[in-house]
């Protein structure tokens, strides 16, 4: 079992399916929206509703913040998403990141992470990040 305060990189053996790895908070602030708009333009955003892709970006940030340090060479192989709500500029998301599965298959170390994002009491996005772990 890996200590939660460990500074060593996460390895395949460390992951325990069902284990919650972190609960980061993500602020949907003006800087975040500025980065988004600089990349994608502003056509899908409204004053009352952020682009749904920003939730995906927040999901990735949550995962990356919860699972670190990571070994170099990991591959993000597949991604599942289920949208169930939206968020407004200025709101804060609460994430829960968990390992939901791992499997050795054809000499590859598959690790799947589940990320749920809530805005207030509403679940807005559930994501499954399937990776091939390097070590």
């Amino acid at each position: 079992m890996r200590a939660m305060s460990s500074s060593a990189v996460w390895t395949f053996d460390d992951f325990q399916p069902g284990l919650v790895l972190g609960r980061p908070a993500i602020a949907l602030d003006a800087l975040r929206l500025a980065h988004w708009t600089a990349i994608y333009g502003s056509s899908s955003a409204t004053p009352d509703r952020l682009p749904s892709g920003l939730l995906v970006a927040a999901m990735m940030e949550s995962y990356l913040r919860a699972v670190q340090p990571r070994p170099p060479g990991n591959i993000h192989a597949r991604q599942g998403l289920k949208f169930s709500g939206t968020a407004k500029p200025g709101e804060e998301l609460r994430a829960e990141v968990a390992c939901i599965g791992k499997e050795l298959s054809r000499e590859r170390r598959w690790v799947t992470f589940g990320v749920t994002l809530r805005c207030g009491i509403q679940n807005v996005l559930s994501g499954e990040i399937q990776t091939i772990w390097a070590r």
Binding site: Y40, P51, V56, H76, Q79
Partner: peptide
Amino acid sequence: GTLGLNLVIESIERTFGTLPAGVSIEVRF
């Protein structure tokens, strides 16, 4: 990878005006 994935989500939102609730997506990079 998700920079491209979000471009697809932009396609969906620009098609429907807003992302319909309950939308699910499965992709392979």
